[in-house]
Write a protein that binds this DNA or RNA. Sequence first.
DNA 1: CCGATATTCGAAATCGATTGCGTAAAAAAA
DNA 2: TTTTTTTACGCAATCGATTTCGAATATCGG
Lengths: 325, 325
Amino acid sequence: MKYNAVTIKDVAKALGVSTSTVSRALRDSHEISPETKELVLECAKRLNYTPNPIALSLKEKKSRSVGVIVPEVANGFFSQVINGIESLAFDKGYDVIISQSLESYEREIRSVQFLASRSVDGLIISLAAETANLEHLQQLHARGLPIVFIDRITDEINTHRVIVDNFRGTYDATEHLIQSGARRIAVIAATEFLSTTRERVAGYREALQANGIKELPELVHYCFYGGIEFAEIEEIVNKLFTLRQKPDAILTTSDKLTTGVLKTLKRRGIKVPQDVALAGFSNTDIPELIDPPLTLIRQPAREMGAAAIDLLLQMVNSKRRGERV
Amino acid sequence: MKYNAVTIKDVAKALGVSTSTVSRALRDSHEISPETKELVLECAKRLNYTPNPIALSLKEKKSRSVGVIVPEVANGFFSQVINGIESLAFDKGYDVIISQSLESYEREIRSVQFLASRSVDGLIISLAAETANLEHLQQLHARGLPIVFIDRITDEINTHRVIVDNFRGTYDATEHLIQSGARRIAVIAATEFLSTTRERVAGYREALQANGIKELPELVHYCFYGGIEFAEIEEIVNKLFTLRQKPDAILTTSDKLTTGVLKTLKRRGIKVPQDVALAGFSNTDIPELIDPPLTLIRQPAREMGAAAIDLLLQMVNSKRRGERV
DNA sequence: CCGATATTCGAAATCGATTGCGTAAAAAAA
DNA sequence: TTTTTTTACGCAATCGATTTCGAATATCGG
């Protein structure tokens, strides 16, 4: 309640006591008599008093809000992650402030500093594709800001990370493609600097090797902007299908890439799985609706978000109690 | 910068001047000499001073943050709306605090009050399915909180609304189905209390009438939870296809419903458009990937979000200048 | 009945920044 | 030179809440 909000002073004035008394009564301090407490409580309720969280933040240097930075909100995976974060945070009385990096390093820095200057109590972040330098986060981490990485992590900062077994995901999917008869398996991945990309491509490589298939460089492609720019995907698919020896399967390492490739194939009239098999990461309903269903690797996005906020709030609260995290 | 943050006091102390001088120098007040200004500016930069927005909020009673309440984040349409809101808000230096109602009236109330107590400068909201009473918003609106409705609006509060022509959307889609030969067109809509539902169903009705087709009550169905509960959709589809005279087309009035119906039809082995034609609202890539492509009504979600935040910030700023909005 | 301990509450500082008011010194006017 | 007006800055209040310290009243043992 900000407009004409009733403050602790109004309650104090109405009762003819001091603000200290009101404050203590509301916090159920032992040094206030039961009768006074009741009076204050009744009056506070009657005047519809609600504490001002901003004043509290200023005093206590904590804001009961957490920052979340994702590459993009309008993305099946990330929006589900946010769902998980928000649901749990709301129940614990925390605000969730959302920011998008749009895969831009510069924007990520600005977001981080913006949130930090807002005194968020903690930060959940999935790194932008462009982000190679982590100073902006290291500084804050060194100053004690609790941080949890989700999905796109780094090991340059020692803190909690929430990920799935990316390696196994692509390993299994690749093996599945092989067992279905594929031999020339292309992979379309996001920026190679992302932890997820590295792990997922590694799974692909390992699966090829385990099955005695040689990796062909012309079949491995990276999308710098991970499909935010649709043209990026289109170009790669075009390149793959003008090869003398076309791929007989494609593995995609993200939601956006899977959808993008599917769309491109459809536009070019390339049939799945007749002309080319397809497997990949996805967190949308699409694969279920496509005929025939794709092999897909689904991440428990909502649960990952919930796990991240849970870890974060644990750090926030233990820090509050002065514990080492 | 919250941890060991350098304040205006530190700068003042370092220079041996008063905090007033520092504050005024930083705000480029005319009553500070150029030399002093330069000194202060240099020192502030050297000490890496950043103003504390919380202290500012307390003083100025505004937080440079806006609240956004949507039924669900993990939804194609709403996540795109949020994308639009966040992008523009970020550029203007505003925080975006997200909250989900999950279609629950009670949760919407809690969210609204939570955000209000946070002193957000304005609110963008898309009403929950359960929300029939608007007191919680009327109160805040009466107190002067700028509010913008998006998509699911109400006319019980006189403020800006951002919507598309829902009536025309379903009217055209229905007509398209009729022209393709459909006569028994079922409609699956969200809660009938939602503005969007009413307008969209009205478009459907009008199109039927304009084409001399009688509306059949058994073909009109409402999903209270709009598809958040998948079972709801399944049940309706089942009901439709156990009718003696089955529908030859289905019109769906939301993203989730379209996807849900599609999923159900596929599970039941009902072919689109051979067994039944399908048209509906959607903001995902799905329709483009399905064979054959569906008739779909797409809302410019990102642009709607951008329009909403633009209107909201206009209200916020004019209110600040004391204008009537 | 008196000094001692408890109980209950108020005054004022604090968090970080802004700003109205007062004032000393410098500049301009007389 | 005296008076008036700027110029340039400091003091202190303010925003809303918490909390330390101190003090007044009450209670109790002796």
